[in-house]
Amino acid sequence: MKTICFIVLSCLLYLQMQAQTYVSRNANVSFYSKTPLEDIKAENKQAFAAVDLGKKSVAFTLLQRNFMFPKQLMQDHYNENYAESEKYPKAQFNGTITGDVPNKPGNYKVQVSGQLTLHGVTQQVQNIPAELEIQEGKLTAKAAFAVKPGDYNIKIPSLVKDKIASQINVQILAVCLPAK
C-alpha cells in the first residue's frame, strides 16, 4: 500500500513539475505618470495572467475599473474621460516570449512582444524586457514598459496636458501557479 501511495505521489509531483502553463487571477499592473506639476499612480491588483512555457506565449487581461487611484477625482476622470471604462471595460495583451525558459527553478531574462489592446485600439508592442523566475512551483513574472496615450486614441485636454506625462510607465508583477 505504501509503495502504491509513493508511486502515485511521485507521479503527481512529476506532473506538477512538468506543468507548462501558469496562471494568476491576481496579477498586479500599475502605472505611473511623473511631471513637474503632478505625479499620478494607479494600481490594479486583479489582472488575469497566463504564461505558457510550452508555447512560449503570454496573455494578460484586466478590467479598467480595477485601477485604484489615491484621489477620487483622478479615478473618476480616468474612468469617464480617458479610459472610457464603460465603453472599453477591458484591456488585454497577447504576446510571445523570446529567450529560453526551461520549466525548472531559475531566473530567466527574456523579451516579450505582442499586441496590446487598450481603449479599443490594438498596437504592436515590441521587445519588452521581462524577468521570469521559477521557484517552489511558482512562476513570478516581472516586466516594465511605456505606453503613449496618444497611440491608443486617448485624448488629453490641453488644460491638463502639463499634468500627464506623454509616456506612462507600466509595471507588471504576476505570481502565477500551475494551471489546474
Binding site: 484586466l62 480595477n66 471595460p89
Partner: peptide
C-alpha cells in the same frame, strides 16, 4: 463590483 473577467471582480 467592477465587472467580470474569469471571475466577478470585487475591489476595495
Amino acid at each position: 463590483c467592477t465587472g467580470v473577467l474569469m471571475d466577478v471582480s470585487i475591489v476595495d
